[in-house]
């Protein structure tokens, strides 16, 4: 698959449970090798969306293409190209870490050269626990194993639903390296959900924000910040006094500041809106709209 190909194509996706619609007309794409973060408040529909793309849930309406196929009837070859890390697992508790990884890896041999279990265990930092029973792992260790299982078949497309929820800072850092490595070296396309906005900003090439089952933003972190008015923060010192001002167009504001005070403006700082501010503003705005 070459760069630039559309790997994920979601168009007008709808999902209804009973009489409530939880996804309304969700549309987005991901290109080959892209890391896409799906953000949104609890209950926004992230897991539902991801499970439809994984082929685990059947949608109510809309067009969905994943690696050129409809996930509802993907088949085994398609399945071998997709890696899945669900929001929570507690299966195979009696199995040992290495045993399970080796067993699952064997299923991919007809399609690709799967990861060597020991190398993979080392890559997710579980070497010291390779012989342990899975039910004795801590929450974060278990999550690392989930990630390892998700990538054991060297997927072209990887779904990660809140992969780092229980990680300590070191594990999180290692995980970020791993994900960036998969994207940069193996050109794996990755769709991940997270509630950690710094993580999204660090990992994602593009961010899609869902709220109440609708896409309320789609773009890079910088694109999103630009779309929000009045968010940049400008700080400076004038005649010994500290000033703070929020400006939609911080550059124009600074120009005007200099025009008025000239060299008397000192210690000028411009803070671009963080993803966190952008996110909060977007979600708040969307919630006011829907009210």
């Amino acid at each position: 698959m070459s760069p630039g190909t559309t790997v994920l194509d979601v168009d007008g996706l709808r999902m209804r449970y009973g009489s409530t619609d939880v996804l309304h007309d969700v549309t987005f794409q991901a290109r080959h090798g892209e890391v896409l973060a799906l953000l949104g408040p609890n209950g926004a529909g992230k897991t539902t969306t991801i499970e439809i793309l994984e082929g685990f849930r059947s949608r109510s309406a809309g067009r969905v293409q994943v690696l050129g196929a409809d996930p509802a009837d993907g088949g085994e070859r398609w399945r071998a190209r997709v890696g899945v890390v669900l929001q929570s697992w507690r299966d195979h508790g009696k199995w040992r870490v290495r045993e399970l990884l080796a067993h699952l890896a064997a299923h991919y041999t007809a399609y690709t050269r799967p990861w060597d279990p020991d190398e993979l265990i080392a890559a997710v930092g579980l070497t010291a626990h390779a012989a342990k029973k899975i039910k004795t792992l801590s929450g974060g260790q278990r999550r690392r194993l989930d990630v390892a299982i998700g990538i054991v078949g060297r997927p072209e497309l990887l779904f990660l639903d809140e992969p780092t929820a229980a990680f300590d800072p070191a594990a999180r850092h290692d995980f970020h390296e791993l994900v960036r490595g998969l994207a940069d070296d193996q050109h794996t396309t990755i769709l991940l959900t997270t509630h950690d906005l710094a993580e999204a900003e660090k990992l994602a090439d593009r961010i899609v924000i869902l709220d109440g089952g609708r896409v309320i933003a789609d773009g890079s972190a910088a694109d999103l910040a630009r779309g929000i008015a009045g968010e940049d923060e400008v700080r400076w010192v004038h005649e010994g006094r500290r000033h703070t001002h929020r400006a939609a167009d911080s550059t124009a504001f600074a120009r005007e500041l200099f025009a008025r005070h000239g060299a008397a403006v000192q210690e000028l700082e411009v803070h671009r809106a963080s993803l966190e501010q952008t996110y909060l503003a977007l979600v708040r705005h969307a919630e006011q709209e829907s009210r």
Partner: peptide, 14 residues
């Protein structure tokens, strides 16, 4: 219930 089957489903021929 514990997700073992789902894990199998996520694996080719699982």
């Amino acid at each position: 219930e514990d997700g073992t089957l789902l894990r199998a489903k996520a694996t080719p021929h699982g």
